[in-house]
């Protein structure tokens, strides 16, 4: 996957986050400085539907690959379905055995969706994995060239947290990319942080409480993904600056 992580540019990424939000992302990280010339720019899609706002096909210059993973029944498919602007490629099948007591359908290969910010020329490709350990080979296939990991966990499914934590740390030590922890079925930031800590999430890894059956909640996760990309870009640029001097 050829991505534009190193070339997207901080300016563009900051604007794309602003556009996605419509407002500043979080009180901890103000995105729109008063002097920002784009601060008064209209939102890309104030009605939440970018396809209506942009009748002309956008020109996509930068593509980022997002791996949406986490334990069984955490909400990975729901996240992709809630934010994808294209038809989601889904491999849902009916569940059997004990898993059918948890939910009726499950992903067996992958989910695929996209989320574009047309004015910024940014496209996020969302690859969702199955959650059960027997499908681990799919995660291994899908994780190549990932830019950000979106790790989804169900706040109420505590029995999944220990294994999820092991999987999260193992995946990130392998990939060495930023992660966003989406704590599904949770409305409270502190509660979500507690869940994330129980997974072994690091202090700098953003945690998003969300209700992934809601598109608005899914967009909050997208915002944090964009912020993670921005942070990575800034870090890469500062490294380049250090190297140059």
């Amino acid at each position: 996957m050829s991505t534009g992580l190193a070339s997207a540019g901080e300016h563009g990424t900051q604007r794309l986050v602003e556009s996605e939000l419509g407002v500043a992302a979080s009180p901890m990280r103000p995105l729109v400085e008063p002097s920002d010339p784009h601060a008064d720019a209209p939102s890309v899609h104030p009605d939440g539907n970018p396809r209506e706002a942009h009748a002309v096909a956008p020109r996509i210059n930068h593509t980022f690959k997002i791996l949406v993973t986490g334990p069984f029944a955490a909400g990975k498919t729901s996240l992709i379905q809630s934010v994808s602007q294209t038809d989601v490629v889904s491999t849902d099948v009916v569940t059997s055995g004990d898993e059918s007591d948890v939910k009726a359908h499950t992903t067996v290969a992958m989910d695929f969706g996209t989320h574009q910010l047309p004015e910024e020329g940014i496209s996020l490709l969302l690859f969702g994995t199955p959650g059960q350990p027997r499908f681990r080979f799919m995660t291994n296939i899908l994780k190549g060239d990932v830019d950000v990991v979106a790790f989804v966990v169900d706040a109420h499914a505590r029995q999944t947290h220990a294994a999820a934590g092991v999987e999260l740390r193992s995946l990130l030590s392998d990939l060495r990319v930023p992660a966003v922890i989406a704590v599904n079925r949770c409305d409270d930031q502190e509660a979500a942080e507690r869940v994330a800590r129980s997974l072994g999430a690091l202090a700098g890894e953003p945690v998003v409480p969300c209700q992934l059956i809601s598109p608005a909640s899914g967009r909050n996760v997208i915002v944090e993904i964009l912020l993670a990309l921005l942070d990575t870009l800034e870090a890469a640029e500062s490294t380049c600056g250090t190297d140059a001097s």
Partner: peptide, 15 residues
Amino acid sequence: SHAAMLAAAVGLAHQ
């Protein structure tokens, strides 16, 4: 893992 791989392959093939 074979059964899981078969299920994944057929799941993708359906698509």
